[in-house]
Amino acid sequence: MDRRCLDPFLQEAGVVILDGALATELERRGANLDDPLWSARILLEAPELIRQVHYDYFCAGADVAITASYQATFEGFARRGLSREQAEELLLLSVRLAQEARDLFWADPANRQGRIRPLVAASIGPYGAYLADGSEYRGDYGLSVEALMDFHRPRMAVLAASGADLLACETIPCQAEGEALVRLLAEFPQAVAWLSFSCCDDLHVCHGEPFARCVRLASRSEQVIAVGLNCTPPRHVEALLRHAVGVTDRPLVAYPNSGETWDAEHHCWVAGSGETDFRTPALRWYAAGARLIGGCCRTTPADIQAMAQVLRHRSQV
C-alpha cells in the first residue's frame, strides 16, 4: 500500500470520487440480504453480482471501489459453519472482485480518457456490523479498546496483505473504536487507511463524542491518509466538515447515506424523504472541505455519476 495513492487524483482533479452503496444496490438488483452477513452473504451466493456493481460504479465515475467486506468477519462466517480458511478466502475474494471489475473497466481504452486508474479500498466495518443489530449507529458495545483491537486484528491482517490499495475503516460510531483501529494500524506498518465515523448530528459521532475530537485522534497516525464521515444523513455533513477542517491536515472524507426515513411499521423506506439530487450537496461538501466524496446506503451509480460530473467540472458550475 502506498501512502501517496490518493495524490494523483487530488493533484489532477482536486477530488477523489468514491463509489456509492453496495448492499442496498445489491438489494435493488434483486439480492436477498435478509441475513446477519448482509452484503457478505452475496460473496457466498452471487459474487458475480458484486463484481458487476463495482464495474458499474467505475463506469459512473468512481475513482475508488469499496469492497464487500464491511460485514465479512471471521466470527460471522463461523456462525455459518465456515472454517477460518474459508472465511479468509472470502475476504480475499471481496478484494479480487473489485480488482477484476477495475481491470475490466481499465482494459477499455475509452474508459481511460480523462481518468486515472481507479483504486480498491478494502472495507473494515465496525464491531457493530458483526452484531447485525444496528449498534454501528450507537457504538454502545461495552468493550475496551484492547478488546476491539482483538476483534479487528484477524480481518485487518488479511486485508492489509490482500493487494488492496488502501483500507476503508468505515461507519465507526465511537471514539473507542476509532482509537482501537488507529492503534491496530501500527501493527501493520505497510497499511494505509481512511477512517470515517458515523455521526448523529452536526457535532457528534453516534456514540456522543465530539466528531472533531475523533478526527484529531485519527490524525495522530501517519497511516491514516484521510479522515471524515460516512453513513450520516446529508443534512449534517457541512457542519461536521467545518468542525474537522481546523483539527487535521488530512484530506477529508464525506460519503453520507441518502438521508431517507425508515418506516418501521411497513418495513420500507419513505419515498422522497431523502436527497434525490446529489449535485448541489456534493459541491457544498467540497466547499466545506471534503476531498474524498461519494455515497453510502441507498445511493446509486446514477447518484455517483451526478456527483462526479459536477465535482470534476466545478469551475463550469
Rank of each mutant, 00 (worst) to 15 (best):
A78K: 09
F278T: 01
G228W: 06
T232L: 03
A110T: 02
D34T: 10
S83C: 11
A13R: 14
G128H: 07
R51K: 15
Q316T: 08
L143Y: 04
A164Y: 04
H207S: 12
H152S: 11
Y70R: 00
Q71N: 09
H54D: 04
C206M: 13
E179W: 07
R250E: 05
R115S: 10
A306D: 09
N230W: 03
H266A: 15
V145C: 13
G61A: 12
A31V: 07
T232H: 13
L203V: 15
L217W: 04
R29H: 14
E12W: 09
S273R: 05
Q316A: 14
A107E: 12
P256Y: 05
D133R: 02
M156P: 04
A186E: 15
C297T: 10
T248E: 03
D103Q: 13
E222A: 13
N111D: 02
G61K: 01
V15K: 01
A288T: 03
Q175T: 04
H236C: 09
L26S: 03
E209G: 06
V310Y: 13
P8C: 12
L217E: 13
I17K: 02
R183G: 08
V224C: 08
T73H: 07
R314P: 03
A129T: 02
T261L: 14
T300K: 13
S315W: 11
L37H: 07
G114A: 01
H313G: 10
E179G: 03
L195H: 06
N111W: 08
D277Y: 06
W106D: 00
C59S: 15
G246V: 07
V192S: 13
T261W: 14
G30Q: 08
V64W: 05
Y70L: 03
D303Y: 11
C214G: 09
A40H: 04
E12Q: 15
C268A: 14
L203H: 14
L241A: 15
R29S: 09
C214N: 03
A239N: 07
P189S: 08
G294V: 00
A101E: 05
Y55L: 10
G139R: 01
R155D: 08
R183F: 08
G259L: 02
C59F: 03
L49N: 04
A72F: 06
V245W: 11
R138A: 15
L195M: 12
A98H: 08
G76Y: 01
A302R: 11
A78S: 14
R4N: 11
S144H: 11
V205T: 09
A107F: 06
Q175W: 15
E170V: 01
H267E: 12
E179M: 12
P256N: 07
G139Q: 02
L43D: 07
R298N: 12
L18I: 01
F188R: 04
L26A: 05
E25N: 01
G272L: 02
S258W: 02
P154Q: 09
V310L: 14
L166P: 00
G163D: 06
L10C: 06
Y55P: 06
L33R: 00
L167T: 02
F151G: 06
R242M: 12
V53C: 02
P234M: 13
T280Y: 09
R84C: 06
R216D: 08
Q71M: 04
R291C: 10
D150P: 03
F105E: 01
A65F: 01
A60G: 10
L195S: 11
R96C: 10
L131Q: 12
V53P: 02
G295M: 00
R84F: 12
P233F: 11
C5H: 05
V227R: 06
